[in-house]
Design a protein around this nucleic acid. Structure first.
Lengths: 152, 152
DNA sequence: CGGCATCCGAGTAGATACTG
DNA sequence: CAGTATCTACTCGGATGCCG
């Protein structure tokens, strides 16, 4: 089940784009061919994505509000991710010297720019969800059949 | 250093979009709020991304060609990733009963659709690479300063 | 309240050797 | 050629406890 059709023309165009993007650099270095990796490795794990999405949903969140929303994350991992995201400039951490202390997190403009890309990706994922799931069950089905055959 | 400016208006629009996308579902379930996770968790690791990009670059690749191009990947991980990507419908595996056996991998139309998203993301990452790196060094710098202060 | 330090268990990656 | 099998090493996430 393939929802959309992609013409050969488009494929060629994409290949050419890739060539322009990566053709001139040393293909031996995966870091170079994939800037996505060093730039986004830090922000593309599931927790970071959820954090950014929730900070797009609510303009400002405190640590425990984030923890409550990003359901299932541990203190350690949350504080790790927040530190990384802050370090790469996706969000800003503001501490108010009150008693008890109040700490607020909100997206920077850069974070909002990333958020927009995330939303596009999420929309794509949502659109193609059924496609993936149907492929997956089909494939697992055939795997099980294979295993059955192997057992015989 | 923030390259682009995002207006408050845009931010509100994005928040509304998120509300439309996720507002009606149970925020307690991260799987629901982030279809990206169950759909793409399988295809968004660094090796899978590289595999898809190389299969966009070369229309067809064999196992050892992929291994050579996706530099640094082990047999085990490559065959794992290929199986997963095939299972979710990103690529097609064709085996020719020759001697020695020949196996070819190429993207499906669905894989090409994903490739286009990947390229957009890569372009974004490339554009904002310097931004992230400058933030990162700035931040690490201030961390080191903190550590110095702590040592005093 | 908002974290950080520590420990532990599970899963994952990688290297190497081997097979149809 | 295209993988599988096996073992080791290491990272990651979760739980807990402590501190300002």
């Amino acid at each position: 089940m393939e929802i959309e059709t992609i013409t050969d023309n488009q494929k060629v165009k994409v290949a050419r784009k890739l060539k322009n993007m990566f053709g001139h650099i040393n293909l031996k270095d995966p870091t170079l061919i994939c800037p996505i990796r060093d730039v986004m490795a830090l922000a593309s794990d599931k927790w970071s994505i959820l954090i950014v999405l929730y900070l797009g949903y609510f303009p400002v969140l405190r640590f425990n509000e984030l923890k409550k929303n990003v359901y299932g994350i541990s203190n350690k991992v949350l504080s790790e991710r927040l530190k990384h995201l802050e370090g790469d400039g996706y969000l800003k951490r503001t501490m108010y010297a009150e008693m008890p202390v109040r700490v607020e997190y909100k997206l920077t403009n850069f974070g909002h720019s990333y958020l927009q890309k995330l939303i596009e990706l999420t929309e794509w994922a949502q659109t193609h969800k059924d496609c993936v799931i149907s492929n997956r069950t089909k494939f697992h089905g055939s795997l099980e059949n294979q295993e059955l055959e192997n057992q015989l």
